[in-house]
């Protein structure tokens, strides 16, 4: 592994979304690769600030506070993500569901390692869960919760979405060889490294 900042392959890392993102850019002029990589990481950081339910200043935290009372106008990219999540919920008949926020809290998965909720707590939380109660208005680009205690959480899709956005930026800079992962669980690669015919990930 090179420690020279101006040599390729360029390796960059970022702490975001409660994990470590790493980026390897294979072949080309290192100075140019790094500039593109830094832009990609900046986009991941921007999405963390937008999507995180751990940041009270995030757009998603704002939605969770407001959307039970009134439709909330959301940023265009985030609205696209909400539509994408709704389509996934429909396709999986609710197996994938970003409205699980109240259940995550009841089970102690937010800022904790989990706990067994009482039957009452589980029922109360469950009553406020369900993707069909998430009302999206594409014309006004608003989201509204059909139940008072609803909360959305992008924990299941945020990392992958951020990696897709990073890859899109790398492609826009004509990067032909790159690997981006978030906490080793979400990975996206372009091309292959200089010295191999494929990216190899640990088994």
């Amino acid at each position: 592994m090179s420690t020279d900042l101006l040599a390729s392959p360029v390796r960059l890392a970022l702490d975001a979304m409660g994990t470590r993102f790493e980026l390897v850019l294979g072949s080309g002029e290192a100075v140019r690769l790094r500039a593109a990589g830094e832009e990609a990481l900046a986009e991941i950081l921007r999405l963390d600030h937008q999507l995180s339910t751990y940041r009270s200043s995030s757009e998603v935290s704002w939605i969770n506070v407001r959307a039970s009372q009134t439709p909330v106008v959301v940023e265009a990219g985030l609205f696209g993500l909400l539509e994408c999540c709704q389509a996934l919920s429909r396709a999986t008949e609710g197996a994938f569901d970003i409205t699980v926020g109240p259940l995550l809290r009841a089970w102690g998965f937010v800022n904790g390692t989990g706990r067994l909720p009482s039957d009452d707590a589980r029922r109360a939380a469950g009553a406020n869960v369900g993707w069909k109660h998430l009302e999206l208005d594409p014309d006004r680009r608003t989201v509204r919760f059909g139940k008072p205690g609803m909360r959305i959480d992008f924990g299941a899709i945020g990392k992958g979405y951020a990696i897709d956005a990073a890859i899109e930026i790398l492609r826009s800079h004509d990067i032909r060889s790159a690997l981006v992962h978030g906490g080793t669980s979400s990975i996206h690669a372009i091309g292959a490294p200089d010295d191999s015919d494929a990216w190899h990930t640990p088994r």
């Binding site: 940023e75 265009a76 990219g77 696209g80 994408c84 389509a87 996934l88 680009r141």
Partner: peptide
């Protein structure tokens, strides 16, 4: 499924 968008759409919504 695409989640990309054209930033110009934002101004239309606004």
């Amino acid at each position: 499924m695409s989640t990309t968008y054209d930033r110009r759409d934002f101004f239309k919504t606004a």
